[in-house]
Design a protein around this nucleic acid. Structure first.
Lengths: 204, 204
DNA sequence: ATTTTTACCGACCACTTAGTCGGTAAAAAA
DNA sequence: TTTTTTACCGACTAAGTGGTCGGTAAAAAT
């Protein structure tokens, strides 16, 4: 348990650099040699720790990508009270982070979902698991918002979650081509419009 | 002009099969050999007609992808009167077509935008041109809708266009993983909600 | 002190990749 | 009829690709 330290450290280094390059260039357009070169490690080291390129990527999904999505998009809304302002703030933050990151290559989750769609079902499933966690959390906060009187009773929480995730994924795809500030601004404004139409109307 | 017929026919055959495979497997994950094999053509034939893989793909973008996006998403709304029902019907149609196509690998435009993002600026630019045509058309129909009294005067047409494109791209990404019918239903319902909040309110 | 395990090296393998090039049969131009 | 052009063939190249494997130095276990 303690002697695994070195092993864990090396594996983690590989995963971090691996994710960096996979995110930047895409999975199919990134070779293991490339990753190894930028780590000054050898083939032997790689295949000592991982069974295959696919196995390697799965470990990246489960260790790094899950956490990234969680800390950026799930944790900030989990268990919170008034859904719309919370989600709004969360999205705004996420978009701002992307905007100020000149190494931004889009929303990591949707990028890989697109890349592996029907091309590698094993990896696709692991990615969709993350999507589902996100979705469940959105639905949950929306439902709670209904009982707390923040969200109109007639609102379809699942539908709203789908719509939110869709629009977020889409705008992140568009943002990579620049003009981020403007895109974010326009997106957030429309999001507020949309939320407005779902807010509990007091005294009909 | 007439003797080019054979040339055009072969090039077109290559482009059609090329797009099929690029769409299915991704650009970087599809080799020219693969395309040529499924056409029973040789390397010589390919490099006689096209300068490179990139040049080949650019020609596909300009000849086939433009038309696909245009006929599915632009032409049905171009010059029409009441924006929201028209856009709604157009999106509904597009999503239904995708749903009933078991060879659906997502929205062709956003798939490639993702794949080439920052990895190939030449191709990215050609793809973004298509996006811009779409955007301009949406903005234009929304503006017209304002003067015709269908759309609330305070609505930001550009913002709405961005939001529409984003959400459409996103939902198409999600749809590839199945449960399309449900996704489409939920998406369309929320789209209507959103449109409702933008519709001209009569007599304040 | 000896043996075993861990973590890594790097040469090597079979295969695929985009792209080149000399050739050629049929059609068109002269 | 001869020459030229068109449209294509397929062997070849150089540079990768994911993955294997025999080896090894240091650390840990015995």
């Amino acid at each position: 348990m303690d002697k695994n330290l070195k092993r864990m450290a090396t594996m983690h280094r590989m995963q971090v650099t691996g994710l960096e390059l996979f995110y930047k260039n895409g999975y199919y357009n990134t070779s293991i040699d490339e990753i190894l070169k930028s780590l000054s490690l050898s083939k032997g080291a790689f295949y000592y720790h991982f069974q295959s390129k696919e196995d390697f990527f799965v470990s990246i999904v489960q260790n790094l990508i899950v956490r990234k999505v969680y800390s950026m998009l799930i944790e900030p809304i989990e268990g919170k009270e008034n859904p719309f302002p919370v989600i709004e703030k969360c999205f705004e933050n996420a978009l701002e982070t992307a905007e100020h990151n000149d190494m931004d290559y889009g929303f990591i989750l949707s990028n890989f979902i697109s890349e592996f769609n029907r091309r590698n079902t094993v990896i696709s499933n692991y990615l969709m698991d993350i999507y589902k966690i996100w979705e469940v959390n959105l639905i949950s906060i929306l439902q709670k918002g209904k009982s707390d009187g923040f969200v109109d009773r007639h609102v379809d929480s699942e539908g709203v979650a789908t719509y939110l995730i869709s629009s977020y994924m889409g705008v992140r795809t568009l943002m990579v081509q620049g003009n981020c500030r403007n895109l974010r601004y326009k997106y957030m404004q429309q999001l507020r419009h949309y939320f407005n139409s779902l807010t509990q109307k007091e005294a009909v």
